[in-house]
Design a protein around this nucleic acid. Structure first.
Lengths: 209, 209
DNA sequence: GGTAGTTTTTGACTGTGAGTCGTAAACCTC
DNA sequence: GAGGTTTACGACTCACAGTCAAAAACTACC
């Protein structure tokens, strides 16, 4: 996330097919490596991989026509970067707002949309926020992250209550003076767990005892 | 689902590696076909594919050691069969209760577990039940399906209220005499939509106006 | 130093969804 | 018709989430 919007890292192709169109980072799988190792290897050519807080597999795309020049499958991964980190990227690579994409190569436009949907789902029934928020944050900051990712307004009051009740976030005890115009200093929170944990969505139909 | 338990179709390998172990149906991808086409093609060798009510991609497994004899990726799919249908299967192929698996080949044991988790999630925040339940059913029948799939008790009262409020199921108006020992005849329901539809899980943090 | 303005926090109120339980309804068998 | 069985329905309660308003804590300015 940058500038209040969800952004995705794309690089501009210099060669056909899809010359000048923007593509997701990635490349060919080598023998003996897993898909995730391959993703990290290719990503390392563009950014500092240590700054990617969470990686998960999205889906595998197999339409024979997805690449007009060759028969190629692609397994898409979703990687998240914390707000505040601003990895240095090479010249051909740039962050793009996810709701205002340039022309994309292959089926990468659809992949980006699928990634956003996955993120939206994960944000509501897991602690995935830890991968987007900085290590510590105020509620106003966290709210902005959720607004950008979910694409709609989020009430700070509700956000706090929900995430605290689910024991997803906890106050650190510190306070932090708020932005430019003064105002009451905000409590500083952190995510309790910085690894993905699903908050049980089956509470619905499960008996309480 | 058969005999009140969630079951999975496996076939017994006749050759190494994993001779005599049980494997998921599947096979190699051919040029020009999508993964889903390939799955259906290989599945057709085992069962009547028309009886599979829903198919979705699970994940792609890429551990180099998953097959000790070759370097092979596998994309797993989840396929669901309605209760009541009992597709004829060849001799080497059999249904196995998902919580009592025989020795499995490759990483297929883990894949089956992942499939069950996916199913459990989908049952609670989508209308995925349509793919497991027969075209029309009583609440008691539907309840059994949910119990088998979720692995815990489900209250019939709640199940009805929840699914009716979400407009996932609707009464057909018919009644059906209940099992052996008499009893009040049960109302017959059907799923409103027999295609996967996610019931919005974001209601949580979205303002109402 | 006081006053106004900003931002965050807190609590009360409310509506809805969901779990529990008891009772009524509808059917069977004997 | 009596007793047993299964399903349906309604009442009660609790927990959770959305709204709103007021209090708290700070800055900036006069």
């Amino acid at each position: 996330m940058r500038a209040g919007r969800l952004q995705v890292l794309l690089w501009q192709r210099a060669r056909a097919p899809f010359r000048d169109a923007w593509a997701l980072p990635g490349g060919l799988l080598e023998g003996g490596e897993t898909l995730e190792e391959s993703i990290r290897r290719h990503l390392a050519a563009k950014v500092d991989v240590r700054e990617i807080s969470h990686v998960e597999q999205l889906a595998t795309y197999s339409d024979p026509d997805r690449d007009p020049t060759a028969w190629e499958l692609a397994t898409a991964y979703l990687g998240l970067v914390e707000l505040g980190l601003d990895p240095h990227v090479p010249d051909d690579t740039r962050w793009h707002p996810i709701d205002d994409l340039p022309p994309t190569a292959f089926d990468h436009g659809a992949i980006v949309l699928a990634g956003r949907e996955r993120l939206r789902g994960k944000l509501s029934y897991s602690n995935a926020g830890f991968a987007l928020a900085p290590p510590t944050f105020t509620l106003a900051e966290l709210r902005e992250v959720y607004v950008a990712a979910l694409g709609h307004e989020v009430s700070a009051t509700n956000l706090r209550r929900v995430l605290e009740r689910r024991a997803v976030i906890e106050p650190t005890g510190e306070r932090r003076p708020s932005g430019r115009a003064g105002g009451r200093p905000a409590e500083v929170f952190r995510f309790r767990d910085r690894h993905l944990a699903i908050t049980d969505p089956f509470a619905a139909l499960r008996p309480r005892r």
